[in-house]
Design a protein around this nucleic acid. Sequence first.
DNA 1: AGATACACGTGGTCTGACCACTTTCTTTGA
DNA 2: TCAAAGAAAGTGGTCAGACCACGTGTATCT
Lengths: 207, 207
Amino acid sequence: MNQSEGKSKVYIEIVKQLRVMIETDGLKAGDKIPSERELSERLDAGRSSVREALRALELLGLIETRRGEGTFIRDFRENQLVQLLSTFILQDKRAKRDVVETKYLIEMDCLRQAAAKSGDDKLAQLKQWTSASEFSDDDFFLKIADMADNHLLFRIWKILKDYYNSLGINPPAVNKAYYEKLTDDLLAGDIDRTLLSYWQLRDLSKE
Amino acid sequence: MNQSEGKSKVYIEIVKQLRVMIETDGLKAGDKIPSERELSERLDAGRSSVREALRALELLGLIETRRGEGTFIRDFRENQLVQLLSTFILQDKRAKRDVVETKYLIEMDCLRQAAAKSGDDKLAQLKQWTSASEFSDDDFFLKIADMADNHLLFRIWKILKDYYNSLGINPPAVNKAYYEKLTDDLLAGDIDRTLLSYWQLRDLSKE
DNA sequence: AGATACACGTGGTCTGACCACTTTCTTTGA
DNA sequence: TCAAAGAAAGTGGTCAGACCACGTGTATCT
């Protein structure tokens, strides 16, 4: 494979062809792609060029290569985009001011989604867990974010949570009553009351 | 450089050290980093390993290498990465669903924030612009996101917009009446009606 | 049947060769 | 002396090859 005609570097072409292969062969998370040596033959490129392409995709979190085993597709939803973007966005000084507000907005979105999508059995489990367990605020909203059934929203929340925690804001002591009331409102299917309970929870948590 | 003690692959270590170098040396867009051969010496690694790290960073859009010249820092632009990733993500229906849903949730958050924070003069300007201009859906919500006065939320929306746009969903023809109604509801300070209008706008947009 | 050893396949890293291009330096000619 | 041309050096681009570390599968031994 040479480059005299086209402008693209070999590794870029390989990335493109891997993408097509994934699509054509219907490869899903956990599936194995051909070995480096086989790809080298198939794509008429040097093994080093194949590796360059694979390393690039690996850094993006789209694949995972394990010595002795091979190279596997990862769940594309776990890609590193959100992580990478947060690196740049959160370096922006202005962003820090907005972290708290945005975290709260996302949490409320998660509550709305959880209310809309979760069955009563899931909410009953949450209620039981809330009563029976010692938990942190983060533990609680991790469950809510999970119940929102939107992986992207879940990851955004996680990034915001981690960053919020890195700001050194003291974690509030958990007053269980607020979380239990919130859960009750969720169970009752009353989203407005749920959001009101959230505000009350946060007003308290802030002091 | 060998790997017998640590778990990280060499290229990952090189990526990390490049990151430190960029930061320590205060390198900015356009600045040149040391040659592959020099990095190879400095970091005590093979040139191939250096190249693997560089290719990975290049695919992320963080650097640009030009034959005969060298490797240069680039301004990070999210849309390049989003576009690349979306070609993979497109293959995952759940990921597509998450993107669409999250964009809508963020837009509603922007509406809520715009309603809470914007003065009547700003909203009046929006009303006037909506009447007087030809605009796209993205144009409209760019303004809304701006009026939310939360830079982080704004950036999140922009990235989601790029993501959404690379899904290949046909941009709907703008039916101005819906945007004008939405603006009226904002002006009236009725957030529930505003959100209802948003839902109506999106329901139509989906056909 | 279970444990062990061996062979093979896969990835991991490095070296080296050579090419294409760019930049810098040196030589030549006006 | 200055400008242009050519050569040398530097940079990235690609490939081949060597050899090691690990994982998996098969064969053999207890």
